[in-house]
Amino acid sequence: MLQTLRYRAWAVVATVLALAGSLLAVGASSTPAHAVPTTIPLKITNNSGRGDQVYIYNVGTELATGRQGWADASGTFHPWPAGGNPPIPAPDAAITGPAAGQSTTIRMPKFSGRVYMSFGQKLVFKLATGGLVQPAVQNPSDPNRNILFHWAEYTLNDSGVWFNSSQVDMFAVPYSVGVQRSDGSTTTAGRLKSGGYNGFFNALRGQSGGWGNLIQTRSDGTVLRALAPLYGMETGALPASVMDDYINRVWSKYASSTLTVTPFGDQPNTKYYGRVSGDVMNFTNGSGAVVTSFQKPDADSIFGCHKKLDAPNDQVRGPISRTLCAGFNRSTLLTNPNQPDTSSSGFYQDGVTNHYARHIHAQMADGKAYAFAFDDVGNHESLVHDGNPREAYLTLDPFN
C-alpha cells in the first residue's frame, strides 16, 4: 500500500479504522446498542482566522454494509459509483463549511472514515477500480498538491464514537476534535498551544539533518504542510539512513542483553523476551519458545510501522511490533529495556529520533498527538471517545 508516489485506495484504510473501532469497543463500553443513534451531530467551528472558503468532506465505509461512499450534510450515505482504470472523477461530495468565526453542523453516520477540510479550493477525488483514490501529496503531480487541507478520522458504531486528530501522514492545518458525553460534559483533543502552529514549523526548519525539507510551500509562499518522515523519505527530503545509527546501537545492545516487552497493560504477566542474533531479533515466551522474529529494521519500516515491523491483528506479533515501533520512534529502546515505556518524560531524548513527532508533541496543549501510526501505545494519542455521544466537534484553530 505504501509505495513511492502511490495512490491510496480507501478500502485498506477504512478496514483498519473499522477494526480499530471494533477492538476498542470490546470491553470499553457497556452501552446498549440502541443507545447510539443512526447519526450524531458534528459541529464544525472555524476559528482559523483565514478568509478562505472552507469545504468539508465526509468519506469512508458504511459499517452496516461495508460499502465505500460519502455522507452529505444530513448524514445520508451515498455509495461511490464504480471506478475505472485509469481513475475517473468522483461525484462532488463537498459540503460548504463555515466562514471565519462561524459554525456549521452536519451529521455523522455510522461510518469508519475521514472528515476532510480544505481551504480555498475543493479537493480532487477520483475512483479507481479498487475504491476511492485519496490525496497523496508526496506525489508532485497529485492534483491536491497545492491545496491547503487536512483531515480527522473517526469511527461511529453501536458502541459509540472514536474521533481523533491525525498527523500520521502530515501536519498541515491546526484543528482539534471533541465530543459531548451523555452527561453533558465535553472532552477535546488535538489542540495546539498558543503559537504552536508557527512553533512547530520553526522548530522543524531549525532541526539539523534535513528535517526542514519535509515542509512543502505553494508558489505564493503559503506554507501547506510538513510531510511525515515516511513520505519525506519517498520524496528524498530525508536520507534513507536517517535512523541507522540508533538502529545499530539498539541491535548491539540486545545482542548481549534482553529486551522485555509487556504489550498488554491489563495482562502484566504476558511477557516476551527479545534477543538479537545477527540481523534478527527473536522473541521468546516464558517457556523459552520462539514466538516471532524481526529482521533488523530500516527507517522506512520504523516511520511507517510496517514492512520489517509489520503488525498483524493477532495477539503476539502485532502487539510486540507496535511496542517496537513506538520504542524506535520515541527512541526509548536504549534507555529502558522494559517496553513499552509509557512515561513521556523519556521520549525523543536521543539525538537520532523521529524529530517530526517530537516537535508535534512539544506543541500540543496536552502533549498528545497521532504523529506516527502507533502513537497510541501508552495512550499518547489525540483521541476522544464516548459510548453514548450527544454531539461531536471539529474546530479549525488559529494558524498564528
Results as ranks from 00 to 15, higher is better:
N329W: 02
N285R: 01
Q315V: 11
G49D: 11
H380T: 02
D310N: 15
D92K: 00
D244G: 01
T188W: 15
G83T: 07
G195R: 15
N400C: 08
D386H: 00
L148V: 14
P79Q: 10
T4G: 13
T129F: 13
S287M: 14
A228W: 00
G199H: 08
P229L: 06
R275Y: 11
P87Y: 08
S159R: 15
A203W: 14
W211H: 05
V250R: 07
A326W: 10
I44M: 13
S48L: 07
L204F: 00
T61V: 07
M364I: 01
R191E: 11
A25R: 03
I302H: 04
E391Q: 12
Q68K: 12
Y356A: 06
P337A: 08
A82W: 14
L5A: 13
T258W: 03
T235S: 14
A136T: 14
V223C: 15
A35S: 10
N285G: 08
V179N: 02
Y370H: 09
A71E: 09
T284F: 03
T65R: 12
V12A: 13
G351R: 08
G351M: 06
D314F: 06
G120L: 04
T104L: 09
T96E: 11
P398W: 02
G318E: 04
L148Y: 13
S166R: 00
S301K: 10
G378R: 01
T260G: 09
V179I: 13
T292M: 11
Q295F: 07
S256V: 05
A255N: 12
Q180N: 01
S29E: 01
L192S: 04
A11Q: 12
I147N: 02
G190M: 02
D350I: 02
M117Y: 12
V384W: 01
G27S: 09
Y254N: 12
G84N: 15
D244V: 03
V137K: 04
G232L: 13
L324I: 06
A128H: 10
Y356S: 01
Q68Y: 09
S382D: 15
D72V: 01
G265W: 15
V54I: 14
D366F: 09
Y57I: 00
S345G: 13
L148G: 04
L334Q: 09
S103D: 14
V124K: 08
V173I: 05
T31R: 11
G206A: 06
D72N: 06
N139C: 05
D300P: 01
T76W: 02
N139V: 03
M117R: 05
K122M: 04
A93F: 07
A71C: 15
S331C: 15
N313R: 14
L227D: 03
Q295D: 09
T258C: 08
A226Q: 11
S165K: 01
G160Q: 06
A371C: 14
S30A: 15
F294K: 05
Y393H: 12
G265M: 11
S103P: 05
N213S: 10
L324C: 05
F77G: 02
D376H: 09
G278W: 05
G84F: 07
F201C: 15
V179F: 00
V36P: 06
T187N: 10
V26P: 09
D375W: 02
Q167K: 09
T105E: 06
R358C: 00
Q349I: 00
G113Q: 03
N146I: 06
L383C: 05
Q102V: 04
D300C: 10
V173T: 07
V26Q: 08
V59C: 02
V384S: 01
A326N: 10
